[in-house]
Design a protein around this nucleic acid. Structure first.
Lengths: 191, 191
DNA sequence: GCCTCTAGCTAATCGCATTAGCCAGCGCCG
DNA sequence: CGGCGCTGGCTAATGCGATTAGCTAGAGGC
């Protein structure tokens, strides 16, 4: 019998895919091992345990998430960048609900946790979107946090199935982006 | 030895308090039983199991959350209601982080799940805040969702310790409320 | 003062994560 | 080509926490 030839990275990626299919809370070492055609204890040669695995999924998630946003806003600025980045992020979340849950559940263990760097990449992507509005630096941090909260909140509620009338959710999202765009442009133009 | 005299409600409430102290993910039947001065299996006389318990905490959470907002916006309207409701909700989340996590993690099993009614009470509180702006009915639903997303997102990121510079988080929150208030007033005044 | 009903208890059971210890394939060196 | 060490995978054992089975005693009603 040939060896599957697993690595920490391949195990993590398989877990990420699995989690999108069955839901983060359903993840167990058993199902993952089965998916990889391996016995459960073998996984421990690549990850330290379930907590470690979840953490690795979270780090992977933030990197992929940051990539998706960065690619979307490439070469755009202002409202266009905002719209493109926001839509890309929403699409990504809907396509990777399990990963997204894992990413939100994770907590950094300390300043040198790789999760911190991964999260910073995401924040940097959003910061790039906000920067296009050329706000007062004192306001920029607040605008960034507002945007981050609104987008994350929307995606979270949607992923949880929290909106009653599914039909209009697309409209609500673009409406929200417009709302933010107009608000930021008003501020930028203001005193 | 006198009987503790537990009930489903008292077990749920004790679990909610416990979860705020130790974190939702640390909740186990064992620690809860210990807290209540009882042996683990005894809890099963009041709740069907850990999943049931978590679900009950979530329902309780949404009701308390809705109460907190409703009380805060009593007798206020427009921007004042928005500010008061938002601040009350943020305060509540910071004081009850474990419960809040439990509430967000829960999923309704169907339309007659008591969780649905509880969530609707929360949404109704927010709807009351938005209604004060007398928007076009077509926009009201979008405004409601935007507000819900922004507030939930902010609370979630904050509860997760996701904001880097703690000092300015208060300012960011009031800035965000102002941003939303001004945007909604502009829309209300518009065409 | 008895009777019933049930909250709480002790003693299994079970599932899943994790650990211990064994073994074989692969690459490398002679 | 044959030996050697390293390491990934395996089986068997451990352990902890959730859950279930079956027993018992205290509180409330007659």
């Amino acid at each position: 019998m040939p060896r599957p030839g697993l690595t920490t990275a391949s195990v993590t990626e398989a877990a990420a895919e699995l989690v999108d299919e069955i839901g983060f809370e359903q993840l167990s070492m058993g199902v993952l091992a089965e998916r990889l055609g391996v016995r459960t204890p073998s996984l421990y040669k690549h990850v330290a345990g379930q907590a470690d695995l979840a953490h690795r999924i979270a780090v992977l998630t933030h990197h992929q998430f940051a990539d998706a946003i960065r690619d979307a806003i490439q070469g755009r600025a202002g409202g266009e960048a905002l719209a493109a980045g926001a839509q890309a992020m929403r699409k990504w979340v809907l396509e990777h609900p399990g990963r997204y849950t894992a990413g939100n559940a994770a907590r950094a263990s300390g300043p040198d946790d790789p999760l911190v760097a991964a999260v910073e990449r995401v924040v940097a992507s959003w910061a790039a979107m906000v920067r296009g509005y050329r706000l007062n630096p004192a306001q920029e941090i607040h605008a960034l946090r507002m945007m981050r909260s609104a987008l994350l909140g929307f995606a979270t509620v949607e992923a949880a199935g929290g909106f009653q009338f599914d039909a209009a959710v697309d409209d609500s999202f673009t409406w929200m982006i417009n709302f933010i765009d107009e608000g930021l442009r008003t501020i930028a133009a203001g005193p």
